[in-house]
Design a protein around this nucleic acid. Structure first.
Lengths: 349, 349
DNA sequence: CTGTTAGCGCGTTCAA
DNA sequence: TTGAACGCGCTAACAG
């Protein structure tokens, strides 16, 4: 059990005071260049590592950023984290990751843990149960920066980084219309969450702009899950007037629907078009490959990191009521599952 | 900016000393039940939250566990983290995640960050460049527990949790043999890393046990990447005596190979068998679905968490030379890509 | 069973 | 430009 080197050890070795060492290490302006060099050299020589814990206790701030996400093993979230962690690490900030598992209680509990750890700030994407951002106000009151990304509420109380869900959904639906599909259904993951409401709004708007009626019977709430997608597709084709395409807010339920249709001998994309959302890895590799909306998660993670750095650098400004919203434009990735020729008329089934 | 409630505030409110409050909160045995109740009630009333930073500085240990992995956005790693985080969170431990991006330097830098954060312990899977575990010795010398999982070296210097790669590879190869494939190639991700050496050993052993020759020309070092898989498959079929099956240590290169063969009109599994490794999400959903080895990452994460908890609970034992290795048996998931009937003779191509 | 005292390592007054 | 002294909040000796 080796003892750690402290500023004390190096102050003794140099015949200086601990405070001078502290200042020299931090490039304090009122320390002579010579002393600074001396101290830094000695520090390296002795293998000095600053004790962040002690610094945290003293200053009340750490170099740890807390993250709360619903689940880490979704392609989208793990890629966002990846981009975020890259930017933060470059700035010597560590990242604590916690999962809410779609539970509001867990989300609140995680917030407690992060607060107790004295995180520099919190970056979160809310759970399916979360209806408002009130529990984040505690942090804002203490001037701890909070960024909400992707899943947020309608009225932001803090900075956010989101995808333009409306436009992504609009493009996806319009693409189906332009490829000759006449009756387009929609799978929404949750009627509650704002991002899914936005996607539904984009879907509806595209329909109406192209003179197609919005039919509530064609909108189903379907979990992001293959089995649920299958069951929902079954419901749809049993309708008196069934659709010939689905725009799904989830790639998983899109895949489930596609598998169900295949089993029933309904041809995708010939008879039935499918578009998903999120660009999960499998969408590119299934047969037929699935047209989907790419939210650029890696870019999003980096942007979140940059936004965060901007927030903490402006620390002299204790009361900063400017709430910014960064919107990333998603891309429609056109693949096979929606490729019916424009004027090809569908077979009856 | 509200001030935090400290044990001092509650000691004053109750006319007790701070240390009694501290002890009461920690359920110290030599505190009266009455006092404990009083203190806890007051604590809740005032909204007291323990300051972990101060506790860390005092005790030298935090309630944060550090994790180092090559990359978070691989299904396997994100699922391991998910399982691990679940177990640790249940025990009020937070998880810091860092990525090495397959670089030894980054791995070492991450270790520094974690040490400065005074983590309780470190859980790591080493990068492709990492040849030995020397940089982890600093932690062990300070009696900080370290667990290495999945990717480790041949000679462990600390506890580890791994998959039985040899057996997984053996089962995969044997399965191809039993399905009538006669000349089986192997993609290894890296000749350096022990886990891949083990898989190669399993491959070789299965061949030899079934009277088939091991041919070094059929073993290629291929990155875990679709494009690389395509190129490697091309090399293989250009051989004077080409193989009729591949056992790949990566699902990604397995998929690449399969795509290449499809393009060339070579039928999978009829003419050519393919088995991958890791059970990436897409393997189940591509056409044909890919037979692969499931490493049970969620279970693995939980086991790592449990092992870790065992390690830190035994804190009174400063010198503990017992190095344990927990080995998880992987499952072979038989799917379509390897389903040639046992005695069907292959077409020539 | 409870109180007193001290110190973890650092950053920041204040004073020189 | 530098040093002395203090305290962030908590826990662990030691003492009673």
């Amino acid at each position: 059990m080796k003892k750690n080197i402290t500023i004390y050890d190096i102050s003794k070795a140099l015949g200086l005071s601990a405070s001078s060492v502290s200042r020299a290490l931090k490039d304090h302006p009122r320390i002579s260049i010579k002393t600074k060099e001396l101290v830094k050299k000695k520090a390296k020589e002795l293998g000095y590592k600053p004790n962040q814990i002690a610094a945290s206790l003293r200053t009340g701030a750490s170099s740890i950023v807390g993250v709360i996400i619903p689940t880490i093993h979704h392609n989208f979230f793990s890629k966002v984290i990846s981009g975020l962690e890259e930017v933060l690490a470059q700035n010597n900030l560590a990242t604590i990751i916690t999962q809410s598992h779609e539970s509001l209680d867990k989300e609140k509990a995680n917030l407690d843990v992060l607060l107790n750890t004295h995180v520099l700030g919190v970056i979160a994407s809310i759970s399916k149960q979360t209806q408002n951002l009130d529990h984040f106000k505690r942090l804002l009151n203490r001037n701890i920066p909070v960024i909400i990304f992707d899943r947020t509420t309608k009225n932001p109380i803090t900075n956010s980084v989101v995808v333009d869900d409306f436009t992504g959904a609009y493009k996806a639906t319009e693409h189906l219309i332009q490829n000759g599909y006449k009756r387009i259904a929609h799978f929404t993951v949750s009627f509650n969450l704002h991002i899914y409401q936005e996607r539904m709004r984009g879907y509806r708007s595209a329909l109406e702009d192209h003179g197609m009626a919005f039919d509530p019977d064609l909108v189903l709430e379907v979990n992001s899950d293959i089995e649920q997608g299958k069951m929902a597709a079954q419901k749809l084709i049993r309708l008196p007037d069934p659709p010939d395409a689905i725009f799904s807010s989830s790639d998983y339920s899109a895949l489930g629907a596609m598998q169900f249709l295949k089993e029933k001998g309904i041809e995708v994309p010939g008879e039935f078009g499918i578009v998903g959302f999120s660009n999960e890895t499998f969408t590119e590799h299934v047969t037929p490959s699935i047209t989907t909306v790419d939210q650029k998660p890696l870019l999003m993670g980096k942007e979140i990191g940059l936004t965060f750095l901007g927030l903490i650098k402006r620390e002299g400004d204790p009361f900063n009521p400017i709430i910014k919203k960064l919107v990333i434009e998603p891309d429609l990735l056109v693949r096979e599952s929606s490729a019916r020729k424009k004027n090809e008329s569908p077979k009856k089934h």
